[in-house]
Nucleic acid binder design. Sequence first.
DNA 1: CTTTTTGCAAAGCGTTTGCATTGAA
DNA 2: TTCAATGCAAACGCTTTGCAAAAAG
Lengths: 147, 147
Amino acid sequence: MQKDFNKTQIDMFIEKCKQHNLKITPQRIAIHGAVVQSRNHPAADEIFKIVKEKFPNISFDTVNRTLLTFSQIGILKIIESFRGARRFDPNLENHHHLHCINCGKIIDFNNENYDRLEVPRNIQQKFTVLNKRVILSGICKECHKTK
Amino acid sequence: MQKDFNKTQIDMFIEKCKQHNLKITPQRIAIHGAVVQSRNHPAADEIFKIVKEKFPNISFDTVNRTLLTFSQIGILKIIESFRGARRFDPNLENHHHLHCINCGKIIDFNNENYDRLEVPRNIQQKFTVLNKRVILSGICKECHKTK
DNA sequence: CTTTTTGCAAAGCGTTTGCATTGAA
DNA sequence: TTCAATGCAAACGCTTTGCAAAAAG
């Protein structure tokens, strides 16, 4: 079994596309290039701006759809967040969340071990932590049943 | 010093409003009532629907603005989330996030202790955890400087 | 009477959709 | 030649803004 030692990033990208029957278009190559070089967790429009320098005709839409496609085939991740409308919580106590990635439900839970988590020393120096919380994401019981 | 033992929720609400020079309007009372009774971390439009039964003329806008006001005076919390556009992350390894609540920046960090967090027994039974992550929110160094 | 608050309407931002055209395989 | 990908435009969902009218203190 051949190892992937000397695969370049672009070769791995092409391989992933082939695995998923995605065509290798110049746009996809450019978007991939922009995103793997990015820092700071770019949003689609930042990638759009970068790619547009090489492909002035590219549409925002293609960039956005391509990024979503890439996340589906495991080339990048979407930063998990509770999307949709802002939610309010009358529970003022510190608590943690279960997040069902299927139905979007957020379930509170309390856990003293999690409350006691220590902030790493090197982070204390560069960031003032006001709140600590743990998010466990996955599939809730109800969504399991209906699958 | 008198303790708040027998304050009802509505009295505490009125007190908080007075502390912050907010007028006690029937709309605010109704919105407060709906939100403290809520479960499931409602979004503004769910509260809107509930309050509209009593106040058919209320606008979505009032509900939304009132909820934001309430979060500012500590009556409820906004479920912290990375708002704005969806962000992409080319870093596929498990990692955790610092989230600056002032500028919105997301900074990755790695921490083996956090990776090793155990999922509580009672949660394992009702939820399939696919991903664990810790979010430390607060103020980043740059935002500290400019304050 | 003064100052907030409300309701409304429009604008804004990001996302999603449908469709005709283009281009990779 | 075929089918997927692209570019465009419109629609959509949620949030924010400005302003005149109404209401609280």
